[in-house]
Design a protein around this nucleic acid. Structure first.
Lengths: 356, 356
DNA sequence: CACGTCGATGTAATCGATTCCACGAGGAGG
DNA sequence: CCTCCTCGTGGAATCGATTACATCGACGTG
């Protein structure tokens, strides 16, 4: 592979001049520039990003450590992160933690070793020493979706509280009174917050959230199935199961169907995180939709701001309820090609200065 | 960030000795080793992978350029690739081409600039000069899922021919005679092969595949919708629509539903690529399942073989038909927890030496 | 005892870029 | 005409590792 020296030789100039042309430094003569460019062309030269990074101490690479790539929510997040990063001149290396703290650490360490310019994390747990050290050492970092309380890092996330209230109102309106939740891991903020929001919303309706109506899941389909089976075994099973993420909702659907029961007739189902497939399940699933793409983009912007010396901003965007048929029939059936629906109001971002 | 020099100073040895300890070179005294390790500990030293890569000319990184991350098939592929690579001591950088040749080129260039050790590609098109040049220049490469004919690169893929035959037999057995297909891009091998396999299977039953029963899609949901609408507008619409991938099947489902028609009563639907969600759609969708995880792992093994100087092998694994209800009622309903189903025979891999 | 071998270590070259500094030519200004 | 600045350029240091080569002491052996 041709190096800058080969180009210099071919063009009859020094490596310094070649470098200047490549980084379009102003003080290069038109003649030299042309010769260098020609040499680059004939040799098919491409600068070695590794060498460049070593010298400049920047890799123009962002690390994204995600809880679970197989979860469509995170897939979409990853996609929007990569898009925005690309637009800003950065590449992204994705690390999939699979909800395992040890894997998360593996990826953080790997990314740090590669000297990525900044780290986007959706933490699987309360924060390993490794990650905390990295923050302390000054690694630019931004939390996305989930975060770790007490750590001075900008957070980009969706606020589901209002949407959960809407959901409970919807369920209450349908006559449901016994509502259960499949919670996410208590170590994650989203795991906790969604339960808290749900409980608060229930209280507003004078309803309780008894202990056995809180199932402990781990954001994976299998746990949704297991927890739902537990609910169905209860002396008085709930009328509604609210899954704290889409995969657990899928598991719940499995469990219900395995008993020969039907949604929503025998038991209603709702989920946090909306995904395209929810339109096509039987029945279509009522869900709380996050502005996933916008979250990813905002997170990248915050991180790049931090990297490039501008003050990063924490961002909180509202989630919204999407009613379908899995909780009972009231909503008009969703029409794939709406004739002339009034434009749905864009959620206005709630933006705060970072606490940093 | 502490460098090897700092460690050397702290331990009272030279950088060479530190390096030897780190790469556990045999000829280091126990005493020196202990002092170095201690210094590493107190300084929290981590070797700079960038510098190491520059010197050794290997990054221990694989590039994976994938056609579309949002497609669950490719997500799963990416996941298995990362797993196997990690097990073999490599990291993976994923580039999402979104079925766009220009984006594919962008990622290939980017990965090449980063001097990845090898490239795993599922080509979106017939092969850009860039990629062909890379092969010619000796970049270790392996094609996965799709490939480019005439290029001397090992291929890891699934053979769906037998499964497509099974599918047509199934459809024929249900009395369907007018079968249509939503094809993938003609520039991709999978786009072509699936049509060819379908046509061949139809011929075996004395059936024809007329031109207007071949819709041109692009592996994205929207094209599935559009093509299906075209089918439904035909004077004699098909009785079955076979989508060449899962996303187009989703679009087809949309289109059918938008007309107020039902699957399978009004029109049957089948798809290439099985995914977990197909169990939960209304109705569950009959699909051809690829051994995705095994494909990803085999591809990584082939690539790493090539990188480390062993002869890489092309691998072809069989796909298999999974019958559900979207083509008509014959199959027994799928039971989530089968009591004692006879172990389904493992597909025996058809393995060939690489053509390289 | 002398010499060859081996093990442990340090010095310095190297990978491929960027960039500081010095230098020479040419133009402007006094 | 001399001085000073600017512009274009090249030489060489540098980033943080790895590794070939040199060195040196200890040890085994004839």
């Amino acid at each position: 592979m041709a190096s800058i020296k080969d180009v210099a030789a071919e063009a009859g100039v020094s490596v310094a001049t070649v470098s200047r042309v490549l980084n379009d430094h102003p003080s290069v003569s038109a003649d030299a520039r042309a010769r260098v460019l020609a040499a680059v062309g004939t040799l098919g030269y491409r600068p070695n990003a590794v060498a460049r990074s070593l010298r400049t101490d920047q890799t123009h690479t962002l690390g994204l450590v995600i809880s679970d790539v197989m979860n469509p929510y995170f897939t979409e997040l990853a996609r929007s992160v990569e898009e925005e990063a690309r637009a800003l001149g950065y590449s992204v290396i994705i690390g999939n933690a699979d909800e395992r703290p040890d894997l998360q650490d593996h990826h953080v360490r790997n990314l740090l070793d590669r000297r990525i310019d900044g780290l986007l994390v959706s933490p699987t747990d309360g924060g390993s020493p490794l990650m905390l050290d990295a923050v302390r050492a000054g690694t630019p970092m931004v939390f996305v979706d989930r975060w770790i309380p007490g750590v001075e890092v900008p957070v980009v996330r969706a606020d589901g509280e209002a949407a959960v209230r809407d959901l409970v109102a919807h369920l209450h309106g349908l006559g449901h009174r016994r509502l259960a939740i499949i919670a996410g891991p208590a170590a994650t903020t989203t795991g906790q917050e969604r339960v808290a929001a749900f409980r608060a919303a229930l209280h507003a309706y004078g309803l309780d959230l008894p202990e056995d109506y809180i199932g402990q899941g781990d954001f994976q389909a299998e746990s949704g199935r297991r927890v739902t089976e537990g609910f169905l075994d209860l002396a008085t099973p709930p009328e509604v199961v609210f899954a704290a993420d889409n995969l657990m909702a899928l598991g719940a659907l499995d469990a219900v169907r395995a008993r020969g029961l039907r949604v929503p007739d025998d038991i209603a189902l709702a989920a946090f995180d909306d995904i395209p497939w929810f339109v096509h399940t039987d029945p279509p699933i009522t869900a709380i939709a996050q502005p996933t793409g916008e979250l990813g983009r905002a997170a990248v912007r915050a991180l790049v701001d931090r990297i490039e010396g501008r003050p990063p901003q924490s961002v909180t965007l509202p989630a919204r309820l999407v009613v379908r048929r899995s909780c009972g029939e009231t909503a008009p059936p969703e029409r794939p090609a709406p004739p002339e629906r009034p434009a749905s109001p864009q959620p206005s971002p709630v933006t705060n200065r970072s606490q940093t």
